[in-house]
Design a protein around this nucleic acid. Sequence first.
RNA 1: CCCCCUGUAGCUCAACGGAUAGAGCAGCGCUCUUCUAAGGCGUUGAUAGGGGUUCGAUUCCUCUCGGGGGGACCA
Length: 570
Amino acid sequence: MIREDIRKIVRNAAEKKFGNIGEPVFTVEVPENSEHGDYSTNIAMALARTIKKNPLEIAALLTESLKAEKLFSSVAAAPPGFINFRLNEVNLLSEIQKKLKNKKAFGKTNVGKGKTVLVEYFQLNIAKRPHVGHLRSAVIGDALKRVLLLSGYKAVSDTHVGDWGTQFGILLLGFKEAGMSVKDKKVLADPFGVLEELYIKENEKIEADSDRREKAKLEFAKLEKGDRENRKIWKWMVDISMKNLETSAHHLGLLKFDEHKGESSYEKDMPGIVALAFTKRVAIKKDGAAIVDLSDEKLDEAVLVKSDGASTYLLRDLATIQYREKKKYFKNLYVVDVRQQHHFRQVHFVAASLGFNFEGESRLVEFGAMTLPEGKMSTRKGNIISLESLLKEAGERALKVIKEKNPELKNMGSVAGAVGLGAIKYFDLSRNRKSDIVFRWEDALAFEGNTGPYLQYTHARLKSILRKAKKTVKLPKNIPVLSDLEHEILSRILSFEEAIEDSLASYAPNILANYLHSLAQNVNEFYHSHPVLNEPDEGKKAVRLMLVESSTTALKQGLWCLGIVAPEEM
RNA sequence: CCCCCUGUAGCUCAACGGAUAGAGCAGCGCUCUUCUAAGGCGUUGAUAGGGGUUCGAUUCCUCUCGGGGGGACCA
């Protein structure tokens, strides 16, 4: 990566000039304003205190020795003490040319070679249909997995399905009382509709009657103890839900999950953990329950086992950590809603007290809530937007636009699907994952401006040029003078890997999304101001074709990382 | 009561402690005899308030005032 190279060059130059400078904290970055060059560093300002000189003076001194580097065509000091670099164009073009030899591997690095990272996301609940609230975890997790893969990591994705817990007591109670059976034709015709209705009704009853809650909990306790009938019904619910999960994941275009280890799969490990918690005096008994007092951490009480003997979510998560610890993953990433932070802190402390290695190797990749303009989504309010209806609407709107703009297009249906999905995913991924998102149809399904379709469209236009150009032209021996815009675009394409690196470093897909949008803006400006096919100068034409080809490649690969398909035409 | 997040343009969002705080939408004015106008160009417009740390603060600390979330033997 160029940025790394520049870092080393700058550091060496500083050491040569000023002797032992220790390990100064400084950055090499792409300046916001392209007039400041392709890269810049603040090392002079960082060194100012230790070597007691004016930053600008230091920058000027370093600039002198850096000018000899053949990587740069110019190096300049600028107030208050930046050093700005402009890349040598001959070098720039040949680097890009190298990258185009293997387009599928564009942006690929081996920084994660030999390391396996577990990513947990799209944690659906059994017997509930996925809705837009589940979207964030899915698309962020999927994007992380893709970026990890491109960076040379091995990635293991797991849905960690919510297939255990009191909710099944609630469902079982209602199911059995209504005299339903897993063989009923009525039930089989629309299992999710039946279960959802059941769940809502049953919750209402429980609200009104607290004895009923005890009954429901008893059903779950029975299930956990192995009651045959309850197990049978539960198994059926899990089976149909898993099928539904696969369908949703497929419709969302997610990479295949490596594991679907539901909470129930840790059932056998739970008693051991409880025993360990008592032996280590981490847990105490209280009213027949096993609890951990975390009031010193201001985290209240953590419950491992309830008074009725049933396990909790917390215990299941501890078992999950124990299991994953044995796998020796390089990192465990949990892509979860920020609202679960309290719970995860509890897990964190209990795990640490039990001697599990949680800290350092596991971390939350938390994201903000998705709400509706009128407030929170909830099943009870009945204002849930299902994932399927969102995807359907997206596809329909996209198709309408295509019919209007490009009625001749072949395979309209699949392009519409890609565009609709692209809009939805980009809407989510272009935002800082920690921010809350207000879901508005007109925003989530916008096709103009800073949107997924804008990037897809940019890609499709460039592709069109390449199709018409037919053969690629070889670069001439004498490289023509590039315009500032051409230079900037080529330089940005070369920093693709850095966008990936930065995006991964903070698990923030929006960094990559911003990079792509900015690239697309430059490319669109280029598109309208720099003719390619009609350019009479063969040398310029060749460079422009290369620019188009490399931009296309970068956009396509970047979109892939976001889980967005880039159609050839749209 | 305790904990966490958050306050940037009319709206929705960006900005590793750096240079003139960027986009998109909405508004206004241009732009399809040229490679896809889902585009391009121009224009109006913002860091809630007070202290502090720093050569430099939207960013870090602190207080005030707003907004949101969490703290169930739910998940």
